Amino acid sequence: MTTRWLTPKEQRAWRAYLAASHLLEDALDRQLQQDAGMPHLYYSILANLSEAPERRMRMTDLAEKLKITRPRLTYAVTRLEKDGLVGRESCRWDKRGSIAVLTTEGLAVLERAAPGHVETVRAALFDRLTEEQVGQLEEICASVADGFQGDEGTAPEDVPWRRRSSPSCS
């Protein structure tokens, strides 16, 4: 099979994407460490749970929403649980599953961190774009993400949240 090397234009776009995504993630992590003592992933867990019905979500569904592996989510939730920000409950309809629950303290931490987080996102990304570019960014990112979902909306086995690993109760 012949390698399809990137064109110079594609190489520039790829490198610009890498630089922007790394710098953005660094800015978000720094702000959240300073304001809430947690990395961006932990904030994302709290935010997603805050939007879920009754602030509860099955761990496998949360991993899919966050686009991360179940073991990585389990580790993060365990840390958040030790800090009293998240709790875990057994899943009533699946004995192997568990439910992550945002605690009152977790919601308070999220509410304190959210204004600074939103300001960082706005300053680092959206204030630098025109309205047209915001639409293009959404379209481009959705297209890339959809490409990982498969043609029929079912994710292939190699997406993070479906990867097989050691047995766990996620």
Rank of each mutant, 00 (worst) to 15 (best):
A124S: 15
A47Y: 12
G84N: 04
D94R: 12
E51H: 13
R122N: 10
V101G: 00
R88D: 06
A114T: 13
E132D: 14
K65I: 00
A36D: 01
A100S: 09
T3F: 13
D26G: 07
D26T: 09
T69G: 04
G84S: 03
K67M: 04
A63K: 02
R162Q: 12
L49I: 08
I68D: 02
E54H: 08
D29R: 02
E51D: 11
Q31H: 07
L28I: 04
I140D: 07
D35P: 00
L110N: 04
Q34V: 08
I68C: 01
E131L: 09
T120I: 03
L28Y: 03
R72T: 10
T3E: 15
A123N: 12
R92K: 14
G147T: 12
D146W: 08
A27L: 07
D94A: 06
E157F: 07
R92M: 12
E111Q: 10
K67R: 09
Q31E: 14
S166Q: 11
S44Y: 03
L110R: 00
K82R: 10
E131Q: 14
V86I: 04
G116V: 05
C141V: 14
G150I: 09
A124D: 03
A16V: 12
P156N: 14
A124L: 06
P71Y: 00
D61K: 15
S143K: 11
P167L: 05
R92W: 12
D29Q: 04
I140R: 10
G150H: 09
V118T: 09
E25T: 10
L24N: 06
E139C: 04
K9Q: 13
L28N: 00
G153E: 13
G116D: 11
T74M: 08
E157R: 04
A47I: 02
T7G: 00
R15Y: 14
W5P: 00
G106V: 04
K67E: 04
D29M: 01
F148P: 01
D94Q: 10
P167Y: 03
S50L: 01
T74V: 06
T130F: 08
A108I: 02
T103E: 06
V86Y: 01
K67Q: 06
K67W: 01
L129E: 05
G84R: 03
H117S: 06
M1I: 13
A27I: 02
T78W: 06
E105Y: 02
V121T: 02
E81H: 09
D158V: 01
T120R: 06
E105L: 15
V109P: 00
R128C: 13
L125R: 02
R92V: 13
P167A: 11
A20K: 08
I68L: 03
Q136W: 12
P156W: 13
L24W: 07
V101K: 08
L129F: 05
D151W: 12
G153T: 11
L125M: 13
R92A: 15
